[in-house]
Amino acid sequence: MKDLTTWVDVCRLSDIPKNTGICAEHQGKQVALFHLNTTANASSNSASKQLGASSAIKAVANYDPFGRANVLSRGLITETDQQYFVASPLLKQQFCLTTGQCQQDESISIATFVARINDGFVQLRES
């Protein structure tokens, strides 16, 4: 079956320093993209380890619903039990990079986006 999904190049993977984030404009939205380069990734994914790649890309909304500002891409990445979160640079609430769920407030979660690394490029999937 042919893959009909459209992927859009955002930047080169090397444009995002390891374990930091950047912000991209995508279909009129601000998306925070994080370049994970982690031990969990390296050990759990033996295939990619063999290929010499231990990087992954996570994408969530850039808007911090607590601080009400577009800043999450500038947050610090944290890890608990091989789950990854971004801590807001404003008031430090943490959001899961996979589900968008806020750690400090169950009622809050942020949007997530589908992203991948393809041939050295970071790509977001169009919806």
Partner: peptide
């Protein structure tokens, strides 16, 4: 530096003090 940038908190991260609106 490449190995250090990911460790920096809000303000150090961009060598300036972030305010409430980013």
């Amino acid at each position: 530096e490449t190995d250090l940038v990911a460790l920096q908190d809000t303000n150090d991260n961009f060598l300036a003090n972030m305010q409430k609106d980013g």
